[in-house]
Design a protein around this nucleic acid. Structure first.
Lengths: 142, 142
DNA sequence: CCACCAACATACTTGATTGGTAGGTAATTA
DNA sequence: TAATTACCTACCAATCAAGTATGTTGGTGG
């Protein structure tokens, strides 16, 4: 029952961009150094976030990544669902899962469903803005 | 972010014993058959539960396992904490963890703490009795 | 006392996942 | 055109999950 490194890094990186970019592209090298995360490992995470449309990347000098919404419009839930495989706590509740044949007399499914809702509601109620320092949130321009 | 098979099986087994034993010892073979779980795999889980004092085992003919409290006195939290390693969603919040050197300017730790509390409170608020069918709960004798 | 039963113990295997590295190619700008 | 930076693909080592295999120990009934 652990949040994977991918998901945790993703939240930190998104918060980092929100705090330091101010609308400009910001090189991954810089983020990786500031967050002390392997550049190469981060690349894979950024690609996922970019493909999902959460951030925008630009090649070449002066390139890098930037958000394409303001921080309070990103829920932690959507970020984690992109980087983590799924937020469901058990396999049978994953999005595309065929329902388990034992579900009729499964004593535990109700608890898992309730827990699943709890998790998703929690992360969908938090945004990147909640992770930023107060001054930075106020100063943010996109 | 998945609950492991160990934890899920443990809950099902505890509920199974609660429903079928009625104070008597009940052979693991019987539980394994009813729940369709590998007997040998279950043995390891039962040993953990037994060592933690949650259930009692008896050797020989007529032996097996039984609860030593009534079902409403077992929270799902304590069962999962025995079988799952820990319920903390990130390593730095585990019980014996030395605190991470970056905690001072970690933007995410507050969210993880809040989520950790949510998880633990949720599972500590549910009991094995909540997993049982209504008739069986009423009929239970220890 | 013996056969049997069932918990308890230990060691191994297999497969998937995690958390990376390495070495490129493509696009953009000075 | 040279530097920069995203992007892409492949590989790798360690760990963990899940299950199998093979016992030994302790207790019961005949």
């Amino acid at each position: 029952m652990k949040i994977s490194t991918r998901g945790r890094y993703a939240l930190r990186v998104m918060a980092d961009i929100a705090e330091h970019s101010g609308g400009r592209f910001i090189a991954l090298k810089e983020i990786a150094a500031r967050q002390d995360i392997s550049l190469k490992y981060l690349e894979g995470i950024m690609t996922a976030l970019s493909k999902a449309g959460l951030i925008e990347g630009a090649h070449g000098k002066g390139g890098g990544y930037r958000l394409n919404r303001s921080p309070d419009e990103y829920t932690l839930g959507e970020i984690l669902r992109v980087t983590e495989s799924d937020l469901a706590p058990v396999k049978c509740l994953e999005k595309g899962a065929e329902n388990c044949p034992l579900v009729e007399n499964c004593r535990t499914i109700a608890v898992w469903r309730e827990f699943n809702k709890l998790i998703n509601d929690f992360f969908d109620s938090k945004t990147i803005a909640d992770l930023m320092s107060e001054e930075t949130v106020v100063d943010y321009v996109i």
